[in-house]
Design a protein around this nucleic acid. Structure first.
Length: 152
DNA sequence: GCCAACGTTGGC
DNA sequence: GCCAACGTTGGC
């Protein structure tokens, strides 16, 4: 089963928002590589929910893919932040999966703490200048982070 | 198809 | 607010 990490700025959408909503379309991604990762997702894939652009940044909890990639409705919303004039209903450009809330960690696992974990040496998130908002994660990396979360 | 300019992300 | 990294755009 593949594993992923998805970033969100908690000010706009946090793990608590997802807890409230239960399921949400992961809309607003406007990067082809990130979109392609979502296209590659399957129902049941597990997702690390990452809080970015906050102090400290880190992994806040877990989500799960509950719907395959489908056209992102926000690309058609003329007045919205995510409108894309090149997209049409017949030929959408942007897609998103739906993710469901699974759990919030007892504490946020900060990025700094991940940096020193051996099993995470090669993790995409820790690469200098890693900006991709949807990233694949290996099983080993996923398990290592769950282990840190379990230790409390 | 190259590449400079520009915009965005996101840690610090 | 700064700035490194890197994706996108557009002139040529």
């Amino acid at each position: 089963m593949p594993y992923w990490l998805m970033k969100s700025e908690p000010e706009s959408y946090s793990i608590d928002h997802l807890k409230r909503d239960k399921v949400t379309p992961w809309s607003g991604v406007r990067n082809y590589q990130a979109r392609n990762h979502m296209r590659a997702m399957s129902v049941g894939d597990r997702v690390l929910f990452y809080h970015s652009s906050v102090v400290p940044p880190g992994v806040a909890g877990l989500a799960e893919v509950v719907a395959l990639a489908h056209p992102d409705a926000t690309q058609f919303e003329k007045k919205g932040d995510y409108y894309d004039a090149k997209a049409t209903k017949a030929k959408p450009i942007w897609e998103c999966v739906d993710v469901a809330y699974r759990r919030k960690f007892k504490r946020l696992i900060p990025l700094d703490e991940l940096r020193v974990v051996k099993a995470l040496r090669k993790m995409e998130l820790l690469r200098r200048g890693s900006r991709l908002s949807v990233q694949p994660v290996t099983r080993e990396e996923f398990d290592a982070i769950l282990e840190i979360a379990a230790k409390g």
